[in-house]
């Protein structure tokens, strides 16, 4: 194999990792702090019950967590495990990388002379994330869409607790542990050991110890996925000529498709992607730049890798299709009617 290319791919791979790892670390820290220091009941109390408003609120929660798309996945997974309603968690998953102060600031710096890009980016991300969160609320039990270990950690829905004959429930029965012979599942154990909110009431030293262990575990698992995602992104970027991608980029439709494809391939962090988009500002349509800025933070190769740690492939595919189609339509509208 061509040695220069291999070296380029390695350099690219490292550059993605060096750029993304700090944000992953930040996300894992926020996620763990959320786990051990924030009461789930507190979060749930002020989140609206209505699925639409819940999705909207979830999309805005990102403003409290300045993380990019490598950082929001652990937080979203944590939210789901803590029993936050799915529209809220999905709204957060899709919007948090864009709807947060650092990204807003970076986009503003990059597109000061085109403020419409900054505001449309926020508006589109918020709308699309809310709509998709809303759509997912029709699936009242999200478990079939989730990876088994996330699904197990989710608290049972009230109707499940009521409807299931206790002997048919899976799990370990602890003899003598309780007079009611209640079963104890892996999920319960995990809730008790790591994902539980009873941790909030633990002594501080215990909490800090568990915080560290939780961070190590998330860093290890998500770091592994990030490494793999960056390797794939770097390989595709080096071995597909960029001209092939760019030559598609002149028409109102092809430019959007090209930029969405580029966003998915490059997997650049949402914190810095506006600077990347800026370098295309004079050759690409405004709509296509927006499609890059809205789609990239939601779905890209790296994020798909991370999302697969929460969702089964089928659910990631639904997210991908819904986000892709909405971004495409919104950007096309900008290209045809606004610019």
């Amino acid at each position: 194999m061509d040695l220069t290319r291999l070296n380029n791919a390695f350099t690219l791979f490292l550059s993605l990792l060096v750029e993304a790892m700090p944000f992953l670390l930040l996300g894992v820290m926020f996620s763990s702090i959320l786990l051990f220091f924030v009461e789930e009941r507190f979060l749930l109390r002020w989140l609206p019950k209505n699925p639409f408003l819940g999705a909207l609120a979830g999309s805005c929660v990102g403003f409290l967590f300045p993380v990019c798309e490598c950082g929001n996945v652990p937080v979203a997974r944590r939210l789901l495990m803590q029993g936050v309603p799915s529209p809220v968690a999905i709204g957060f998953l899709l919007a948090a990388p864009t709807i947060n102060p650092i990204v807003f600031w970076a986009t503003w710096i990059a597109f000061r002379d085109q403020p419409e890009v900054v505001f449309l980016r926020i508006a589109f991300s918020l709308t699309i994330a809310t709509v998709i969160g809303w759509v997912f609320s029709t699936q009242s039990n999200l478990r079939p869409f989730l990876q088994p270990n996330v699904a197990r950690a989710m608290p049972l829905l009230p109707e499940e607790r009521a409807g299931e004959p206790s002997l048919l429930r899976s799990g370990t029965y602890w003899l003598g542990a309780s007079k009611k012979s209640d079963r104890l599942t892996v999920a319960d154990l995990q809730i008790a050991s790591a994902a539980s909110l009873s941790m909030v009431n633990q002594p501080l030293t215990n909490k800090l110890y568990l915080l560290l262990e939780n961070m190590m575990q998330e860093l290890r698992e998500l770091g592994g996925v990030l490494v793999l995602g960056s390797a794939i992104a770097a390989t595709i970027q080096v071995f597909t000529p960029r001209d092939v991608v760019l030559s598609l980029g002149q028409g109102p439709v092809t430019s959007i498709l090209a930029m969405m494809l580029l966003a998915a391939i490059v997997s650049i962090c949402s914190t810095v992607d506006s600077f990347f988009a800026l370098s295309f500002a004079s050759t690409f349509t405004t709509g296509s730049l927006l499609s890059f800025l809205v789609f990239g933070p939601m779905i890209d190769l790296k994020a798909v890798g991370l999302m697969l740690s929460i969702f089964k492939p089928r659910a990631v595919f639904y997210l991908f299709m819904l986000a892709g189609q909405l971004v495409f339509l919104f950007s096309l509208f900008v290209n045809l009617y606004l610019s």
């Binding site: 997974r77 990876q147 270990n149 996330v150 197990r152 950690a153 892996v186 154990l189 995990q190 050991s193 790591a194 994902a195 110890y209 568990l210 262990e213 939780n214 575990q217 998330e218 698992e221 998500l222 592994g224 996925v225 697969l308 740690s309």
Partner: peptide, 12 residues
Amino acid sequence: FAGTSGPHLSLF
């Protein structure tokens, strides 16, 4: 011998 060995979280 301490440390959590909670169910492992990811795909690998």
